[in-house]
């Protein structure tokens, strides 16, 4: 299969991308729907975009979501990467087993249980009643596990001799981590950060209990409007988010910021 083309596999891959993007295409299409209720196609219009840009509430909610996601991604990626690496090095053992379970727990805890527990926790111990920071802290608490699992999967298969070699060549532990381990882990760290972003940007249930006055995120705003139907305005903002993300990614990729995972040096 060296460098060869595998036609059936390529066709299959395109099929999967089609599946992934079908809802997005529908979403974008229906942002031009001339119907306030948006159940069926009623004709083409551009009116929802100006409506959106005048709607301070939607844009405010989007801005809050972005702030929350930025803090949550940074926090959970750093903490999760360290954890993943540490656990990979422990390779089981009693401490590892406990840590394993602790990491598993946030993933298996029903969101509403976690949401209410955090609501009580912040209200009782800190007298806090919802803020961007409180939402972000909660997001980090449930995102760490995902980052950890992804990073550990790669770290486990990392050859410890590479780091040892670097140490033998006189690197400090920190510099060995920074210059050797981290670059090797980077694809997993990147993947973990992406998952953390998606989780934070998406979360509804836990967020709904952590949001206070003036800190409603975009999913919260949208979900609260379900009762009266989602208008194409919401499709319009989703379209803009996807477009902006796509453009940023394409540009980053063009200028080489998004590199494929480097082949791992073999010893």
């Amino acid at each position: 299969m060296r460098k060869g083309r595998n036609i059936p596999l390529t066709v299959y891959a395109l099929g999967v991308y089609l599946f992934l993007f079908t809802p997005i295409v529908v979403l974008v299409l229906f942002s031009f729907n001339d119907s306030p209720r948006n159940f069926m196609w009623r004709g083409f219009t551009l009116e929802w975009y100006p409506v959106l840009f005048k709607d301070a509430r939607v844009l405010g909610a989007l801005w809050i979501s972005i702030q929350v996601a930025a803090i949550a991604v940074a926090g959970s990626t750093v903490l999760g990467t360290l954890l993943g690496l540490g656990l990979a090095r422990l390779r089981g053992g009693f401490g590892g087993g406990i840590a394993d379970t602790l990491i598993l727990l946030p993933m298996v805890t029903p969101e509403v249980v976690m949401g209410i527990s955090l609501l009580l926790f912040f209200a009782l111990l800190f007298d806090a009643h919802g803020s961007i920071l409180q939402i972000a802290i909660s997001h980090i608490a449930f995102s760490i596990s995902y980052v950890t699992i992804v990073v550990r999967a790669r770290a486990v298969s990392l050859d410890p001799r590479i780091v040892e070699a670097a140490r033998d060549l006189g690197s400090s532990p920190l510099s060995a981590f920074w210059h050797v381990t981290l670059p090797l882990l980077m694809p997993a760290v990147g993947a973990g950060a992406m998952i953390a972003f998606a989780l934070s940007f998406d979360d509804l249930i836990i967020t709904s209990f952590q949001a206070g006055p003036g800190s409603s995120t975009l999913p919260l705003y949208i979900y609260s409007r379900i009762r009266f139907g989602v208008t194409p305005e919401i499709n319009a903002i989703s379209t803009i988010i996807v477009s902006v993300t796509a453009v940023i990614i394409l540009v980053a990729w063009r200028i080489g910021a998004v590199k494929p995972a480097k082949p791992q040096p073999t010893i």
């Binding site: 209410i116 609501l119 509804l204 709904s208 209990f209 409603s216 919260l220 979900y223 409007r225």
Partner: peptide
């Protein structure tokens, strides 16, 4: 602010 459901409001 909007509440997503009446019950969320009650809990809060």
């Amino acid at each position: 602010d909007f509440f997503d459901t009446y019950d969320t409001m009650t809990a809060k």
